[in-house]
Design a protein around this nucleic acid. Sequence first.
DNA 1: GCACGTGTAAACAAAT
DNA 2: GATTTGTTTACACGTG
Length: 442
Amino acid sequence: MEAFHSSLQLLDAEKRGIEREGQEVQKRQDRHSYRGCALRENIDKQDLFGLMGPIIGMSPDKKTEIPGMQEERTGLRGVCGVGTLPEAECASSPLATSVDRTGGAEDEELTNLNWLHENLLQNFTLGGPEAQPSGSPLFDIEGDYGSSQGPTSSSSSAHSRSRERDSLKSKPPFSFSLLIYMAIEQSPSKSLPVKEIYGWILEHFPYFSNAPTGWKNSVRHNLSLNKCFRKVERSLGKANGKGSLWCVDPEYRPNLIQALKKQHFPAAHAFCTPPASPPRASSPPHHFLEGCSFKESDIDAATAMMLLNSAPGHHVDPCNSDGPLDLSRPDAFLVSSDPKQDHNYSSAALQRCSSRSSSSSLSSLDEGGCDRRQSRRAGSEGFHSDEDSDLWDERGTHQTSRRPPAIKWPVRKRARREAKPELDDELKEAAGSLLHLAGIRS
DNA sequence: GCACGTGTAAACAAAT
DNA sequence: GATTTGTTTACACGTG
């Protein structure tokens, strides 16, 4: 943990150095563009760890212009805002209670995706929030927003309006799984009801505000089918809305992170790259960074931190199914180097996902969806115990006749954790390599 | 061609 | 009874 804090300090120092270079770099980046994106060179690395302020993805003015956004956002304030989710506060599940008790400060640093939204996503925009006329984070992610112009370039207001229109009609470059993941991860309690997932998506991807309502069906479909997501029963004693809370299955969080990065941040393949490979070899492919002003070390720093978070023993996961994690305890964030105390399943999950082609993603996890549902229905008490997990680990039925049971069932979690120490080490080394690449001493 | 991931639509049941 | 939520099935399409 001390090393982590020192890394943060080093990041801060580096950030200041980067900022000094900022203007010079901006000039360079103005000369480049890629798919309409121009990322800030001087990414605030503090932000990478979820220390940022409120979400700035969309200006209120623009949001109010979107039909139907107002009512959707009302229920969202508790999610993206500072407060805690009322439902989650009262949720009876160990997850919700343990998470909500925390206040989430350190948890925010280690697990949330604010860094993604406010940096990776937002910094895809032209020069950051001050320069972006539209609040949509996909504003410049999508390639059809016109050529990128640097923040210092003379992007006319007409051009901005044009891009804004495009942002409203262009589909987000993320799958529903990732959208849901981002929504859930950005919530203080790491769990959201469906309606607030809708709200988050609507707020951050205005495209859906004008899209046919089928996308909500898709969201629900994903939540049900994708075993990355778990249902958490709300508190029975309080009538606080329909349905359940949904959270990210900790076992598949690395997969989601990887899918997220594969979708837009191919530097993520460093996660699957053995540490022996040269650091630069794990740099994002040219097609991605080409023209982007996203310094590779920035990406690496971000991915390194995520990898650290994903690495066994470094992960703080409120959704840990091994039992409620009381994040209010000061030792809740102690970094364990003991594999036996590793409550993270990322290594196996990562291995699973890296075993497939680059297209490996989330729905491969759907193979077990039916079993998950079975166990949900058997007792929808939210999270499974290990025994419960073992149940849906070992049953081998497949969901549909169209999906042959090419089941990559997670093996028993504990057994897997103990059986993959070398993989754990690789992950740690990879994290170290990435941090080193980013100029951070781990 | 095949397997897989993803998106979409539709139907249905249960809950509110 | 209407609406929302959750589940399931089916199909289409793109990709490797």
